[in-house]
Nucleic acid binder design. Structure first.
Length: 104
DNA sequence: CGTATGACGAGCC
DNA sequence: AGGCTCGCCATAC
């Protein structure tokens, strides 16, 4: 289709509120289990105010990785807490509890 | 067409 | 448990 990005956005849009998915999980779903970095790159290309729930995507450690070049990490955490996602003392999410199991 | 980049992941120390 | 290194993939230049 238009490209890998569009596919990434399509999958991210499927993630329901209160659930989170990892970059690798999305990459695997798209058929490229080793393209996790590219997934993160696709999300980083999203403009502010996008309809894509990019905040529901975190790394395999259950942690937010967006703090690199912008304070979006703080915003991401706030948005997730709005959806009842729980963070532990280390700022990590329990993927066993909030992890997205995929589309049904 | 070759090199560099990037919101990752798994392995090793 | 926490931090560092190498590997992988899809765009940009």
């Amino acid at each position: 289709m238009g490209g890998f990005f569009r596919d990434v956005y399509c999958v991210v849009r499927m993630i329901p509120p209160g659930r989170v998915a990892t970059y690798g999980q999305i990459a695997t779903y798209l058929g490229s289990p080793h393209a996790a970095r590219t997934v993160g790159w696709a999300l980083g290309a999203l403009p502010a105010g996008t309809s894509v729930p990019w905040h529901r995507v975190i790394n395999a450690l259950g942690r937010i990785s967006a703090s690199r070049s912008g304070h979006r990490a703080d915003q991401q955490r706030a948005m997730l807490e709005e959806e009842d996602v729980v963070f532990d003392e280390s700022g990590r999410i329990d993927l066993k509890k909030h992890g997205w199991k995929g589309p049904r």
